[in-house]
Design a protein around this nucleic acid. Structure first.
Lengths: 180, 180
DNA sequence: CTTTGCTTGTACCGATCGGTACAAACAACT
DNA sequence: AGTTGTTTGTACCGATCGGTACAAGCAAAG
């Protein structure tokens, strides 16, 4: 028996691959191995509610695995190191792309403005906070945080474009070295 | 009277906004103010040929305005400076997003693999070439080039997500300073 | 074994998809 | 004005879209 929570990662994969509009119900059915009946049972609000659930799950994951460690690690440098590990694993070493990034670039941004805004804003803020605790002054901490989060997103674009996941991991290492 | 070349920028805008699959013929008609008849007269191959034409136009623009100056400017540093000016203007100071980046992240990548690959590969190679001529050794030139092109793409993502174009221009300035 | 209440596949809805066909409208040239 | 060849809007095609309705299937409770 399948639970609502079990489908969300499969759903995320479909949205990540095709975007919101491209994620047709037939592709969703194929990706989740569930019929329309089940999907509309779990998500009566249709695609909108499915995407909301996916975004909420992503938000929760990053809050637990990335933002919170960045903000509350005893050693700020350790929190930052944990971020890079978590990010490398989350994007499967460059083989997977960022769903929120996809939404941000596309038409989807207008439909999910707040969640897309919040995701990146919180990430940058949490990283800047850690950098400040690690001794940087406010301005450079913010600039470095924007460079790093932006660099991660850009590296995902380049890696996916080239079909070379290693490009992403190389970029991650350089970004980490810059923060040390 | 409208020429084929006149519609391509309008077409580009539609694809940039909605992606390939999201660019329905009705949205294309709305964006170009042309009926289906005219579109299929200019582009008998349908959406595929339209997207090809748009990608070719973008490729040509970057070749002229960015890649070629990077490769053949007498002063390598000047070629790099011209790149940042051209890029800032092309993306309208962060208000427009990169169509090739959109395609790279999405399902579109598989349909336009070569063009998407080529665009970023050529950009990185041209910039690395300029950096080498400016005195960097091969490895750091390539790393810096990847960081810079990736940084630009990532900054576009962040700026669009936040709805703050200035974020893009700030990132551009920092990237330029790093290369000096 | 029967009943109850959720889960699920299937059929169907109007709307829209990408693409084709073609006749009316039009400009260019004699 | 009359002829020719292209440009353009519109009607139409089968397929698929997101969403709804609902009956068959099913497990747990009695």
């Amino acid at each position: 028996m399948v639970e609502r929570g079990d489908v969300i990662p499969l759903l995320a994969e479909v949205f990540r691959t095709y975007g919101y509009e491209g994620a047709s119900l037939s592709r969703i059915s194929e990706g989740t191995k569930l019929g329309k009946g089940s999907m509309y049972n779990f998500f009566p609000g249709g695609k909108d509610e499915m995407a909301d659930a996916v975004l909420a799950e992503i938000d929760g994951w990053f809050r637990d695995q990335v933002f919170q460690p960045l903000r509350s690690a005893d050693d700020a440098a350790e929190g930052i190191a944990r971020m890079f590990v978590a990010v490398g694993r989350y994007f499967e070493s460059g083989r997977k792309v960022c769903l929120v990034g996809v939404f941000a670039l596309g038409h989807e941004r207008d439909r999910f403005t707040l969640k897309v805004q919040g995701y990146f804003a919180e990430w940058v803020a949490a990283l800047a906070d850690a950098l400040e605790r690690a001794g940087r002054d406010v301005d450079t901490a913010l600039a470095l945080a924007e460079d790093t989060v932006g660099g991660i997103q850009g590296a995902l674009v380049l890696a996916r474009a080239a079909g070379e996941p290693e490009l992403f991991m190389r970029a991650l290492e350089r970004l980490q070295r810059r923060l040390a």
